[in-house]
């Protein structure tokens, strides 16, 4: 059978968004070469479809066969989609990949997405995202009161519980707003993508991460489109998705390291800070309370949370005596 199959992919980002845009290009390339040209994927970036957050609907409706996005963007439509990107104080990327591929992660994700005619697969990891760029230093919980911070979604809810004021600012107004201190802080991604936003030039404090320890992107696949592929091409597609996801994780690791080194060299005045213990404790408490509220309303949410918590307990014990102990033995 040498019939050529064409799939259309819509991604949430622009074609030239560093790292994220590369992942789909790699997917298309791998699918084509592994299938000897029988599986062709056309990529439409947000420049073309103009609907960055319409990816879920467009793949669901079959306007596109595949989407490249992030699960937590669909929280407003599908509350349980929240759990398949990253969670505050949750697993690190290696731990979370273990949960997805060898724990219950993938099957729970299927349970959430299948009713909508969709498959979801891991789509590449950004690693730990930074806590954000701050105009003022956070020394205690008192400094958080009334703090105007641009941070969307669940993490924003935690900030709000602490007394901060999450704000919505149009991306086009973000730079000017932070520069003129209309707002106090901006949460973005990490060195690899923050550098082109230029926040390091206008805000002195760069806080380390807590809320997105391992943001996993997502490949959404329309079930009907997937079923139309012959078995070997299905295998090629899923394999290629797994390879490019892993590759993005490594690529992000690399670019973050390189960009951070550049940023530090060019702007030695940037002060890297971590939130003080009382703030972290309050965030953890708020996180637990919010999760408990979700679990109470929805049995599936409860099961997912339980699966994540128990997997993380096991994985973390190992991370502690492996990676953490190793790093500790190196420092000092």
């Amino acid at each position: 059978d040498d019939k050529v199959y064409h799939l259309k992919l819509a991604e949430t980002w622009g074609a030239n968004t560093p790292l994220l845009g590369d992942t789909t290009k790699r997917l298309a390339y791998l699918a084509k070469t592994l299938s000897n040209g029988r599986l062709q994927i056309r990529i439409d970036s947000s420049n073309k479809h103009k609907a960055p957050f319409g990816v879920f609907d467009m793949v669901r409706a079959g306007q596109y066969d595949i989407g490249h996005s992030a699960s937590y963007y669909w929280k407003g439509k599908l509350p349980n989609s929240l759990y398949f990107t990253t969670m505050p104080f949750g697993m690190t990327a290696p731990e979370q990949y273990g949960w997805f591929y060898y724990g219950d992660g993938q099957s729970l994700m299927n349970e959430v997405y299948e009713p909508f005619g969709l498959y979801s697969f891991p789509g590449g990891n950004t690693g730990v995202q930074m806590g954000g760029w701050f105009q003022k230093e956070i020394n205690s919980l008192a400094d958080v009161q009334g703090l105007k911070i641009r941070i969307p979604g669940f993490a924003g809810e935690i900030w709000a519980k602490l007394g901060a004021k999450p704000v919505n600012i149009a991306p086009g107004d973000l730079y000017t707003s932070l520069e003129r201190r209309t707002i106090d802080a901006v949460e973005w991604i990490g060195p690899s993508l923050d550098i082109q936003m230029g926040f390091h030039k206008i805000a002195p404090f760069y806080y380390t991460g807590w809320h997105e320890p391992a943001s996993e992107l997502q490949f959404l696949v329309n079930k009907k489109a997937f079923a139309r592929l012959p078995a070997d091409l299905q295998q090629i597609l899923t394999t290629a998705m797994r390879v490019v996801a892993y590759d993005m994780y490594i690529h992000f690791q690399h670019e973050s390291a390189v960009n951070w080194a550049n940023m530090k060299r060019e702007y030695p005045a940037i002060q890297v800070k971590s939130f003080p213990k009382d703030v972290i404790n309050a965030m953890q408490a708020a996180n637990s309370a919010l999760l408990a509220a979700h679990a109470e309303k929805d049995p599936l949410a409860k099961r997912i949370q339980h699966s994540q918590a128990s997997y993380m307990a096991k994985a973390r014990a190992w991370t502690e005596i492996a990676d953490q102990a190793y790093l500790n033995s190196m420092s000092e």
Partner: peptide, 23 residues
Amino acid sequence: VDFAREAFELGETSGDPGGLPYR
């Protein structure tokens, strides 16, 4: 019409804390 109906069937709301329901 389809576009609005999908949002209705999913009970879509804002994804942000304190955001508006009934998208």
